[in-house]
Design a protein around this nucleic acid. Structure first.
Lengths: 345, 345
DNA sequence: CGTTAGCACTCAGCTCTGTTGAGTGCTAAC
DNA sequence: GTTAGCACTCAACAGAGCTGAGTGCTAACG
């Protein structure tokens, strides 16, 4: 339906528009395309492209600008990604690979994304989909409150406060912790959750009263746990980069976007969607479905730890971004971050 | 040196300028001041004020605008703060007082500041100036690395990883932790730090080898501790409010400010200065000494827990802010936050 | 029949222009 | 000391006119 020639011209037009942000006219396109066509011919083709909804003119006598559908076609079948330069690649490797703490790897990945693309870089913090309980500790607080410390996955420490039905002595708490550690240490946390629920029933009468109380406390501890975990979070760098783009110039739109960064929810939903995708995913303009991102594009890639998808990272910028550069950057960063987290854990 | 009449006029001028952001001319001022003076007289007075460096005119035939010194005089001796309305006060009390977790109190204080003032609200997270060690735990990791868990002040949990000289068995680690808990539990953390250093020397040969190794590890654990602690941090809300002020309109200035929020260092230094002050502190424009804040004013107040200054909170906005409203808001919020943290701990 | 040149037309953006209104400083009179 | 009057300044706005980039349409060309 869409001729080869028209596609080639669309490609040149989009590239040109991405390069300097001005609507592209027929003469410019004729020169740029190296196709030995006169501007008049180009104009005919452009009229066709406009009918197809791939480009449009901001006003009667301006050049043409790609529409969302135009970008889509461009990204899906016209784009030639340019591979990263060797030197840049080893730079990246050094900067992500050499950090000691995993949180550092995340934030440096985020900064790198934002630096390299001059846009905003986001890295969703990994949700370990397999968390094994290593050790559990109870410490008494004032009243009936107890501080629970959970050590997960070798070296991750989490803590929360639970309210118990009666007061427990330090010795009792110690005993309960011993029992729970003995029964559950080394198991996956989801398994623990389930077994705790199961044992609740089972031990109601049959067992030592203290043990069944221990199970009850464990249930509380792990239940809240789940909630705090699902919240999710991400590391962001370079929002301010977005301020320089003319497309974002009107304060109101930018403000909404910044607010979204703070509230995180919309952005998180979008990243969540990308979790299940295999490789690079691109949301152009309104495609994302979140109105805050209306004149933005988002390029994401999941990263893997232990061959399991652990999280997503990506870049947020104006629709008119250099996809050919951004895509490999996001891709490579995802791989490198996965590798760094793997080796480092 | 500066006549009473001139002061009264300066006050009206500043108030007027704060109200609607336009340079104030002699006719307006004559009307506003209710002083039965003609514009011509006012002009004479204004010329005097300009000579004193308290106001100036953006261009030849515009009205006058307060200078930094003008604001200073206004804030220091002319300002009449308007007390908060009863209803607002009880609103505040409800919103800060009823949260369960201390972190929630901090972030809700920050949001309240930003909502009420329509500017950016900052709350420095409290640095407990007295941290007592409650319990310490060592867990072996791969290689010679050990995970240290510190429980401070009843319910605060911190953890870090240290590298040991040789490999320790879990039993050894347990023994060392027992020893350290026995010797140091309940003591102030700074005291622990000092005593650890002292005992190092003392125990070098005289004691059990394991014990002296324990001391060495403790030193590592607490030393890094200090560093992580001094970093400081704050909760911020409502940066985007700043985008609506005409004063901040030029992107570059705003961008610098946002970057400062991210890097936090400049802002933290400023807040640090306010830690030692008794009550409300006000930095107007360049007074702060940090060029990012050049056209901003910062109003801060320390808040107390246990009658000891625990942290600082405040508001950042354009120099032209409604000081008479902002000051009581910051003041009351500081008190309420202190009360909330007190009762809740 | 696809391609091209030519032509009339549109429109954003710029500069130049004059006008208006708010404000000033100065001087002389009250 | 206070005020009225006057000449002057200047930002802001609106209108006019020009330019350059671009368009759609039509008719001619290979």
């Amino acid at each position: 339906m869409i001729s080869d020639r028209a596609q080639r011209l669309l490609k040149v037009l989009v590239e040109r528009y991405i390069r300097d942000g001005q609507p592209v006219g027929s003469r410019t396109l004729a020169r740029d395309s190296n196709m030995e066509l006169s501007p008049a011919t180009i104009r005919n083709v452009m009229a066709d492209l406009e009918d197809m909804g791939l480009i449009n003119a901001p006003h009667t006598s301006a050049g043409r600008v790609p529409t969302v559908q135009g970008y889509r076609l461009f990204v899906d079948s016209l784009l030639t990604v340019r591979p990263l330069r060797k030197s840049l690649l080893s730079d990246l490797q050094r900067q992500i690979g050499t950090v000691s703490k995993p949180e550092q790897a995340l934030s440096s990945a985020s900064s790198l994304l934002s630096d390299l693309t001059a846009m905003a870089g986001v890295v969703m913090i990994p949700r370990h989909n397999q968390e094994s309980l290593r050790q559990l500790e109870f410490l008494p607080l004032s009243g009936n409150r107890v501080l629970v410390i959970l050590v997960l996955n070798e070296k991750e420490v989490q803590n929360r406060i639970i309210e118990t039905k009666r007061h427990f002595s330090p010795a009792e708490l110690q005993q309960m912790a011993n029992y729970l550690n003995h029964s559950f240490a080394g198991r996956d946390i989801r398994e623990v959750r389930q077994r705790v629920l199961g044992e609740m029933e089972e031990t109601k009468q049959s067992m030592d009263r203290l043990m069944s109380e221990a199970i009850e406390m464990a249930q509380q501890a792990f239940q809240e746990q789940q909630e705090g975990d699902g919240e999710g979070d991400f590391v962001l760098a370079g929002q301010t980069n977005l301020m320089s783009y003319a497309e974002m110039a009107d304060m109101e739109r930018l403000r909404q976007l910044f607010d979204a960064f703070n509230q995180k929810s919309d952005i998180l939903h979008l990243l969540d969607q990308s979790l299940s995708a295999e490789g690079i995913q691109i949301f152009i303009g309104e495609e994302s479905g979140y109105s805050v991102l209306d004149e933005c594009s988002v390029v994401t890639a999941p990263y893997k730890v232990d061959n399991e998808v652990a999280g997503v990272l990506g870049v947020i910028g104006p629709t008119r971004m250099a996809y050919d550069r951004v895509i490999p950057i996001v891709d490579v960063t995802a791989r490198l971050l996965g590798a760094a987290l793997n080796q480092n854990q």
